[in-house]
Design a protein around this nucleic acid. Structure first.
Length: 422
DNA sequence: TCTGGGGTCCTAGGACCC
DNA sequence: TCTGGGGTCCTAGGACCC
């Protein structure tokens, strides 16, 4: 971390409407028209092209907007995470060619550490934008400033303003005060709904007002987190670039069902399926879990008949063995399942994760070596033939599976779907 | 009929210990 | 009788992020 001290500026590179842009990257017919991508289960709109932003809000439930979408001749896609994940890798790999100081912050965002050069940051920003588009077909915005929080603000303005054309350098800029004055407090990274409300009562409405507020008061009312945000707005770097991804603390797999589930059996099957996903990911990271949480819930929009519960199974012996975890899961579901409820959603959380090679030897119960070999075999097959090729017998399909009625081909990761390009 | 999923960090408060 | 006080660990829940 010491070598990062001389990083002059931080750039935030953020893909525009990332899921929509990924769809467009392989389908030129989608250019210039309204396009939206839906959440799992085709429930909500989670990515919109600029044309679609004019008439549909973020997070809009599809059923409320089907008519509007049709009137505007919008193209609608189910989410295709294999495609987006692969496009994300391409963008992130491309960014590495500009600097080794790349923090992958999310599927569509990265922070870059930039050194001062003669070209100037604005020039570098434009270069990044141009090359990423050339190499991946994904348009990005670039915001540059002293800190992550300021870079976020620069990025936001860069995307909104026609003049900036997606790149804005606010590093030691005389325009910083103007930028902060025009940024609503709720658009500051780290300031959410609850904080907006609290700040309203003392008449703080802009990023500039927050920056110039009393630090002690902010710390008292918004903890150290709020204090950091304030200092970052003043140009004091509190959030360093994290070049190595921090070790995972938990892995979740949860889904809403395509159809409501009342019976025990299909619930158990769904849970097995989610567990397999989660365990596959966990083993991929060479981790083992100390505890497993299972949760179920009915439709949260129907409060009169709502039931939700969870149970956490804990063991002194962390495990990465699917069969053992399957046992933990079934024990847990038994404890929280209630008859006569229509369940809408369920999930599993693996937590207390540690590196699997550091699991302590067991004094009494030895893990079954047959199981271990079988687990390894499953890893191999899934790696070779794609996720979820091998299932536990109990994890077979059912009506609870999610709807994905409008999915595009997985152009980049499935050989059999590559040829479907129009 | 239909309303996503996957994370982290922080704090307060209880249990427990000396 | 006037009911210490500090430390640590754990958990639940809030807040926020993409």
């Amino acid at each position: 971390m010491g070598n990062l001290k001389d990083t002059a500026a931080i750039a935030l590179v953020d893909c525009n409407n990332f899921y929509v842009s990924s769809e467009r990257a392989f389908n030129p017919k989608l250019a210039g028209i309204p396009v939206v991508v839906l959440s799992n289960n085709d429930g909500c709109v989670i990515s919109r092209s600029n044309e679609a932003k004019a008439f549909i809000p973020m997070g809009a439930p599809l059923f409320q907007y089907e008519k509007v979408l049709e009137e505007n001749e919008a193209e609608i896609f189910s989410s295709n995470y294999e495609l987006y994940g692969d496009m994300s890798d391409r963008v992130m790999n491309s960014l590495q060619s500009f600097t080794p100081e790349v923090e992958i912050y999310s599927i569509d965002e990265a922070f870059l550490g930039l050194q001062e050069t003669q070209k100037g940051f604005d020039y570098i920003g434009k270069e990044i934008q141009e090359k990423i588009f050339k190499w991946t077909n994904i348009p990005v915005g670039v915001g540059i400033a002293e800190t992550k929080t300021l870079a976020k603000i620069a990025n936001r303005i860069a995307k909104k303003s026609d003049k900036a054309k997606g790149v804005l350098d606010l590093y030691k800029s005389p325009y910083q005060d103007i930028a902060l004055d025009r940024t609503a407090i709720g658009d500051v990274w780290g300031i959410g709904r609850a904080s907006i409300k609290k700040l309203e009562t003392i008449n703080i409405k802009t990023a500039l007002q927050f920056r110039d507020a009393d630090l002690r008061w902010v710390k008292k009312n918004f903890t150290v987190v709020g204090g950091r945000t304030l200092l970052e707005l003043r140009g004091v770097r509190c959030l360093p670039l994290e070049l190595e991804p921090p070790p995972k603390e938990s892995i979740t797999c949860s889904r809403s069902f395509g159809e409501l589930v009342t019976e025990y059996k299909p619930l158990q099957m769904a849970m097995s399926c989610y567990l397999m996903n989660a365990v596959e990911k966990m083993r991929h990271h060479r981790l083992a879990a100390r505890s497993l949480t299972v949760f179920i819930e009915t439709n949260k929009f129907q409060l009169d008949s709502f039931y939700a519960n969870s149970y956490t199974y804990k063991s002194a012996y962390p495990t990465d063995n699917l069969f053992e975890l399957q046992h933990w899961a079934s024990e847990s579901i038994k404890k929280i399942y209630r008859e006569n409820f229509a369940y809408k959603k369920a999930g599993v959380i693996l937590s207390g994760l540690i590196l699997s090679e550091s699991t302590t030897a067991r004094l009494y119960e030895q893990p079954n070596p047959k199981h271990e070999r079988l687990n390894k075999a499953i890893d191999e097959i899934n790696k070779k033939f794609g996720k979820g090729t091998v299932h536990l017998a109990i994890a077979h399909m059912g009506k609870w599976q999610m709807k994905r009625e409008r999915m595009s081909p997985r152009y980049t990761t499935r050989l059999d779907e590559i040829m479907k390009i129009h």
